[in-house]
């Protein structure tokens, strides 16, 4: 298995990268960590005429705070996301999610932004960017633009990114220190793509849940938020009754695919189990956070 012929360009800057993409006439591809792209090129599922390597562009490998947001540059590797002190402090749910991302060797190369751009419906980073109200910052020869994660994901492995565009960074919400979180994932083997995962954050306000967010993956064509379920729990006490109502509503709403890994019914049931655990954990942490 060998990739097909391509022209290789080592981009010196984001401008250089997008100019090269533009002159490739829609047939260029960006490589960062390459942990999803290279398998597809080895299988010749993807045959770009020009491969733009952004690995040596300076300044894209930082994790930084910008106001109430945290910003991850296009070359922030999964290993950096997993070990970064700012992320561990401000977004513990993301810190925890990293344990489920592939294997340590793959984390050495793969990037947060690359995973979002690959948009696998069963990958953690697209879901986390949705959960954390991600904003994708994009440049092209036509200028710069920003897209909410909600608008960025268009379908399974499909995003709103144009062929001459490069994602330079993604902004995600920092969470308030008293935010509780839960993260539950099920995969057949550690590091495999998940059959389903659920991430939840919420705060405890005088005995009631607030700022409830629920992200899910592996249960549809795209990672998703569950706004109806979020609204059901918002402003209510989280107990076995409210959780039961939320899980029933969630299962009624989900339309997962059947594939060789699991049937739609199985995934629907699994998503409910994972959501119940994640909501329970998030509530317990929120209560503790409010008491602290």
């Amino acid at each position: 298995m060998k990739p097909a012929y391509f022209e290789y360009v080592r981009a010196e800057s984001a401008e250089h990268a997008v100019q090269t993409l533009a002159s490739a006439g829609g047939d260029g591809k960006v490589i960062a960590g390459g942990q999803s792209l290279m398998p597809m090129m080895n299988f010749r599922l993807v045959k770009p005429s020009v491969l733009v390597d952004i690995n040596r562009i300076p300044g894209l490998d930082a994790v930084q705070i910008r106001g109430d947001k945290l910003v991850l540059g296009a070359l922030v590797r999964h290993r950096m996301t997993a070990t970064d002190a700012l992320i561990a402090e401000h977004i513990p749910v993301l810190h925890h999610a990293m344990k489920h991302v592939a294997h340590l060797t793959v984390r050495n190369r793969g990037t947060f932004c690359g995973s979002v751009c690959h948009a696998d419906p069963a990958a953690e980073m697209p879901m986390m960017s949705l959960l954390l109200n991600g904003v994708v910052r994009i440049v092209s020869p036509r200028g710069a633009r920003a897209l909410a994660a909600q608008e960025f994901f268009v379908g399974s492995l499909v995003t709103a990114l144009e062929p001459d565009e490069l994602v330079t960074e993604i902004e995600i919400d920092k969470l308030l220190p008293d935010t509780g979180w839960g993260f539950e994932e099920f995969a057949r083997r550690h590091g495999d793509y998940a059959l389903a995962a659920v991430a939840v954050t919420m705060r405890w306000r005088e005995g009631l849940a607030s700022n409830v967010r629920i992200g899910m993956m592996g249960v549809g064509e795209m990672p998703m938020r569950a706004p109806q379920i979020e609204a059901m729990l918002e402003g209510r006490e989280i107990n076995s009754t409210t959780i039961r109502e939320a899980i029933d509503a969630l299962r009624a709403e989900l339309e997962p695919n059947s594939d060789l890994n699991a049937s739609a019914d199985y995934r629907r049931h699994l998503a409910g189990v994972l959501a119940r655990r994640a909501i329970t954990d998030a509530w317990a942490r929120a209560e503790k956070g409010a008491a602290a």
């Binding site: 298995m1 990739p3 290789y8 490589i31 390459g34 942990q35 290279m38 398998p39 080895n42 299988f43 491969l51 390597d53 690995n55 290993r79 294997h103 340590l104 060797t105 793959v106 050495n108 190369r109």
Partner: peptide
Amino acid sequence: CEHGVCGACTVLLDGRSARSCLMLAVQ
């Protein structure tokens, strides 16, 4: 496997493990 699953081709790149089947030599 030549697509990053089996780990047989693992090498160290600047001190960190990497799948050499998912790297281009030119990189």
